[in-house]
Amino acid sequence: MSTNVNIDWSKLGFAYSKTDLRYISIWKNGKWDDGELVEDNKLNISEASTALHYGQQCFEGLKAYRTKDGSIQLFRPYENAKRLMRSCSRVLIPEIPIDKFVDACLQVVKANEAFVPPYGTGATLYLRPYVIGIGDNLGVSTAPEFLFGVFCCPVGAYFKSGLAPVNFMISDEYDRAAPYGTGDVKVGGNYAASLLAHEHAVEKGFADCIYLDPATHTKIEEVGAANFFGITNDNVFVTPKSPSILPSITKYSLIHIAKEYLKLEVQERDVPINKLSDFKETGACGTAAVISPIGGIEYKGKLHVFHSETEVGPITKKLYDTLYGIQFGDVAAPAGWIVKVK
């Protein structure tokens, strides 16, 4: 196993790299086994696995952070565990018990401690828990067996040139999820549905596209693979509420920070696309980027610019700095948000 790793932390991107050990647990005959750490990063599964043909799978994403004193901590892993349980339930996968999920994550981080980037680099250790249907199955039905895995890899700071605004376009042609479909759980099909729309947005010079509600196409829902938030002209933190939005742990953390740390009013409600002028700052939020400030949104051929296309708005910056500080241990965290790796 690696005790020292030769990595230029400043050059890390958000990309896969193999680390020493990963966790694997199998569900068979009605129960999960104890799970184990393994070296092999290749899975040997049946060609008839439901994950391959019918999309019976779900996943999570969270990070481990190195603090100033050299210790390592996870950010709100119990919320990821709860969300994975909801995803499993939605696609008929046996739920992963919360304690099993958190223990698996802690085992993986501890086993790959040498890959946790140093404090001050902005880099983190990204964890990818996932559950897939495996075993011999041909008909459209739930799998006879399941595999729960957790792997990790060091990833760089999402913003190579600092926290900078980017522009997005409204997706008129595509939806990421159907009304009352699987938009509110973290399953791969939602992401597969977004690939073409993302490609079209990038070809047109945008960072990604913004999806409107699939029922009426009149309200903002998600920004690429992230949640949307905005700061109104009278300093209200607003974020969309919809049954087809994935409930972002980052978003709900920002809601708490906006209320308790910045003393802002918070509203989780409809965000009509024709009311962009109500906002002075907007952004996308998620595990990978924490916050991606939105400089402008193109809708019906017109680019609506918020605070600036080049500078981050002051409230967005405070939200980012506070959350980033909590994650790296520099700002006091609410009770239960941080789990130390011991």
Rank of each mutant, 00 (worst) to 15 (best):
A81W: 07
V290L: 12
I170F: 06
L323F: 10
V341H: 00
A177W: 04
N44Q: 13
Y174P: 10
A104G: 02
G283P: 14
R90Y: 11
K63W: 03
D99H: 10
E265W: 13
D175G: 01
D321Y: 02
V185R: 12
S292H: 06
S244C: 14
V108S: 03
T232N: 11
Y320T: 02
K63D: 07
Y191I: 02
E309N: 15
A197T: 09
C58M: 05
I315M: 08
G325A: 11
K275V: 06
G329P: 10
N6H: 09
F306M: 10
V266T: 13
A215S: 09
I96D: 12
A201W: 05
N44A: 06
V266A: 12
C88Y: 09
G295P: 06
F306R: 11
N112H: 10
F101T: 01
N29E: 15
K263V: 05
V131S: 11
K18G: 07
G122C: 14
G30T: 03
A177Y: 06
A226R: 02
G189D: 00
K219R: 14
L84S: 08
C105I: 13
L276K: 05
G120S: 09
V312P: 08
L254T: 00
D136Q: 12
W32D: 01
G135M: 12
T50P: 08
M85R: 10
T142H: 07
F159M: 11
T322D: 12
A177F: 09
P94C: 04
Y324A: 05
L246S: 01
D270N: 14
A284K: 10
V38H: 00
S171N: 14
I291Q: 07
A332Q: 05
I257Q: 05
N233M: 08
R86A: 05
V140D: 03
E298G: 05
T124H: 07
T182Y: 14
Y78R: 10
E203I: 02
A207V: 00
V140E: 04
D172Y: 11
V150K: 08
K100A: 14
T282I: 15
P94H: 08
Y158K: 00
V91K: 04
E113G: 00
R269W: 01
E222T: 10
I245L: 13
S277M: 01
D175F: 07
